[in-house]
């Protein structure tokens, strides 16, 4: 009995967005008379955090506190069009639309503030804490709440903005495949360390070292959630998951979470991840899509680590103990 250790590497890129049919999303934003801002969307939060990151982008652009921004989603009677939450598009597309809407709303807000303060709008800055003041003169300022009230009750203006982001449709040239299918690329590299039981083919993933380039981490804690959860899904895909364990034979498809195999809390690997940032030219504050990519580099890294450990190259997913053991048997001269 031996437990064989190995290490494998993989590096990948991942496209942000889809646009083979055109890829738009809209956002509307308005200030309430309580000095808060409401972003209206028809976008979906699956847990990735658009309700959080969208508010951050709006707060950043408006120059107001995060807590004063609310997101109202998703109702097709009130929310403007969104293609949906998929293709790592949410933060990029919806974020861009929110940023554009927030810019427009900010312009009105600054304009009203300038009128109230009797200064030039170009001389005003936001402090991010709920006040607008003359640049360099924090005392000469006005609360965002008062600007909102003045706009509504004195000036007859709405502090609001419309946002739209469209990646236009790209036709594919049928002969060559020439196309423009995405907006930017995120990147990842994983180094996996595994241990293989040479009598059973069981694999333990000991450690995953990951580097992710994600444009800009809008919210590092949420990015970290995607990284850890995605890397876990990568381990899961590499070693466990399938709806058809005897593919292409359809027998014995799992029906519940007992039969459908995924690593449990007792099977998680030590994880060391680092984020690097190369802001995209077209994402809001340089953001790229991160959600999907995180699962991808661990899979081949584990496959390569298994080869490194025991000399068995498994070329079909999932890499089950059975496939490894058959390979080990073949190497030992006992083909089955």
């Amino acid at each position: 009995m031996a437990r064989l250790k190995g290490r494998g590497v993989a590096a990948v890129n991942y496209p942000t967005g889809m646009n083979l049919g055109g890829d738009p999303s809209q956002a509307l934003i308005h200030a309430t008379t309580t000095g808060s801002f409401v972003i209206t969307l028809s976008s979906v939060d699956l847990g990735q955090g658009i309700k959080t990151v969208g508010a951050q982008i709006a707060a950043e652009t408006l120059g107001v506190p995060y807590e004063s921004v609310m997101i109202d989603t998703a109702d097709t009677d009130t929310g403007p069009h969104c293609m949906g939450t998929f293709a790592s598009r949410g933060t990029h597309r919806i974020g861009n639309a929110i940023m554009m809407a927030a810019k427009e709303a900010r312009e009105v807000m600054m304009c009203v503030a300038a009128t109230e303060l009797e200064v030039d709008a170009g001389d005003l800055v936001t402090d991010g804490k709920g006040r607008i003041h003359v640049n360099g003169a924090p005392d000469k300022g006005i609360a965002v709440l008062d600007v909102a009230l003045a706009a509504h009750f004195k000036h007859g203006k709405t502090i609001s903005g419309r946002g739209m982001y469209l990646k236009p449709k790209s036709e594919v040239v049928p002969e060559t495949g020439e196309m423009d299918p995405d907006s930017c690329q995120a990147h990842a590299c994983t180094i996996a360390e595994v241990e293989v039981d040479d009598e059973t083919g069981d694999v333990t993933v000991l450690k995953m070292t990951n580097a992710y380039e994600i444009g800009r981490a809008m919210n590092p804690a949420l990015a970290h959630q995607q990284i850890v959860g995605g890397a876990w899904m990568g381990i899961s895909h590499a070693l466990y998951e399938t709806t058809e364990p005897y593919y292409p034979n359809r027998a014995h498809g799992p029906l519940d979470f007992s039969e459908y195999l995924m690593p449990g809390p007792g099977d998680i690997a030590e994880m060391d991840s680092v984020i690097i940032e190369r802001p995209s030219s077209n994402g809001p504050y340089g953001a790229k899509g991160i959600g999907e990519m995180t699962a991808n580099s661990p899979i081949p890294a584990i496959a390569n680590a298994i080869f490194d450990a025991c000399g068995v190259r498994v070329t079909s997913m999932p890499i089950t103990p059975e496939k490894i053991l058959r390979g080990l048997d073949a190497l030992r001269g006992n083909p089955n």
Binding site: G47, V228, G229, G230, W232, M262, G264, G266, M271
Partner: peptide, 22 residues
């Protein structure tokens, strides 16, 4: 840590990879 892992071993999470929950 292992007591916690045992306790939640019947609870599926598909998003987090469990680490933050533990």
């Amino acid at each position: 840590r292992e007591d916690v892992v045992r306790a939640i071993s019947g609870n599926i999470c598909r998003c987090t990879g469990y680490e933050a929950i533990i």
